[in-house]
Nucleic acid binder design. Structure first.
Lengths: 210, 210
DNA sequence: AAGAATATAAACAACATACTCACATTTTCT
DNA sequence: AGAAAATGTGAGTATGTTGTTTATATTCTT
C-alpha cells in the first residue's frame, strides 16, 4: 500500500529549446484553450487539440506527458491573464465608477478570446493532480483583489469576504451568460454591468422610496 | 439525403400503469438529476443512473427510449420548478425588498436539492432533439418574469430586456458559485444577494460621494 | 392460475480515445 | 559537408466506455 509511487512532477516531458518547438507548444496550448472553450471538457480530446493546433498528436505528447498536464498549462495561462486584469483594475485609488469600468472592460477582454473557457475550467475540468494547490492559490488571490476593492469602496461592511464573493460571482455570471449568447461586446450590457457593480458597492439602498 | 427519418416522438416507450412502475420512473428521473448534478454531463451514463436509482438498466430502457429522452424529462421537471419560483416571487405588487427576499429564498430552495443541476443543464447537456424549442420557450418565459419585475421596480429604464438579463445572470452566478462551495444555506450570503438585487433595481447610484 | 406488467443484469457491439513507436525532416554543431 | 541532436509525423494499438438488447425472473391484476 505504501508502494504508491509519486509520479515525476515534470510539467513537460522535454523542454523546447529551439524557437520552432516553442511555437509548437504555444500553438498547442492555444488550440487547447479553444477546443476546451468550444466543445467543453467532454469534447476535449488530445487528437482534436493536436489537429486544431496544426500539429501532430506525436508532437503533443513530446511536450506534455498526459492530457491533464495540458489542461494544467491552459489553466495556468488563463488564470494568470485574469489575475492581471483584476490586479490592474483594483490598482490605486480611483473613483468607484472608474474601477467598475476598468474591471468590466478587462473581464470582457479576457473572455472575448475564449468565451466560456473560464467556466469550463472552473466547473467541468478536473483538478486531480497537484493542480489542487495551484487552483486554491488562484482562487485565494482572485478573491483578495476583490476584497481589497470592497474594503476600499464599501468601508462600513463587516463581512468583506462574503461581499467580495457575491460581487465576483455576480460579475462572472453576467459575463458567462453574455459569452454564451455571443453578446459580450454589446455596449448596453457593459453599461449595465458597470451599474450593477457601482450600485452594489455604493450600497445606499435601504428603505426603498415607495 | 432526404431519407432522414423522423424518430417517433414517443417520450416514453411504455406508459407506466401500476403504482410500482410510476415510482420506478420517478426514482430514475430523480437519480438522473442527482448524477447529472454531481458528475456533470461527462459522468452521466445510463448505467450509473439506473444504479443510483436502485433500478436495473433494463427498467430504465423500458420507459425511456434513449439517453436524451431521459435528459429531456429531467430538464422539463427542473425548469418547471424554477419557473414556478420566479412566477411566485414576481407575483403581485409587493415592495422591492420583499420581492428580492422571496426570489432569493425560492432560488436557493430550488437549487438546494441538486446544486449544480441548473448550470449543467444550461451549459453541458446537449439539446439536439425537439428540446431546442422547449428550451427556448423556457428561456423566454424565464426572462419575461424578470422583465416584469424590472418594469415594476425600475420604471425609468429603457432597455428592460438587457437589465432583466443582467439581473438574472447575476443572481444565477451567485447561486451557482455558492452551490459549488456548499454555501447555499449561509444566511449572510442570502442577505447579500438580497442587497445586490435591491441595489441594482433601485438604482440610485450616480455620482459616487467621494 | 393465467396472463399482463414490471424488474433484472449479463452480455454485446460499436465506438472513442489516450498514448506509443518507428521513421521522416529540420536544425545545430563541428 | 556531414554527423548528431532536436523536432515532427500519424498510423496503429490497447484499453476502456457505454448505450442498448435480450432472455429470464418476479410481481401484480383479474
Amino acid at each position: 500500500m505504501s508502494t504508491r509511487i509519486a509520479k515525476p512532477r515534470s510539467r513537460m516531458r522535454k523542454e523546447p529549446s529551439q524557437a520552432r518547438s516553442r511555437a509548437t507548444v504555444e500553438a498547442i496550448i492555444e488550440a487547447g484553450a479553444r477546443v476546451l472553450s468550444d466543445l467543453g471538457w467532454a469534447g476535449f480530446t488530445t487528437n482534436k487539440v493536436a489537429e486544431a493546433a496544426g500539429a501532430s498528436i506525436g508532437s503533443l505528447y513530446q511536450y506534455f506527458p498526459d492530457k491533464l498536464s495540458l489542461v494544467e498549462a491552459i489553466r495556468r495561462r488563463h488564470f494568470d491573464q485574469v489575475l492581471a486584469v483584476i490586479s490592474d483594475a483594483a490598482g490605486d485609488e480611483k473613483p468607484l465608477r472608474q474601477f467598475a469600468r476598468e474591471l468590466t472592460r478587462g473581464m470582457i477582454a479576457a473572455h472575448s478570446i475564449h468565451p466560456t473557457l473560464h467556466q469550463v475550467l472552473l466547473d467541468e475540468a478536473p483538478g486531480d493532480r497537484g493542480s489542487r494547490a495551484a487552483h486554491a492559490a488562484f482562487q485565494s488571490r482572485y478573491l483578495e483583489h476583490y476584497a481589497a476593492a470592497v474594503a476600499q469602496y464599501r468601508r462600513r461592511t463587516k463581512d468583506t469576504e462574503t461581499v467580495a464573493r457575491v460581487l465576483s460571482s455576480a460579475v462572472e455570471g453576467v459575463i458567462h451568460n453574455a459569452a454564451r449568447r455571443g453578446m459580450l461586446e454589446a455596449p448596453e450590457l457593459q453599461k449595465q454591468l458597470v451599474d450593477l457593480i457601482c450600485a452594489y458597492l455604493s450600497g445606499q439602498h435601504r428603505a426603498a422610496p415607495r
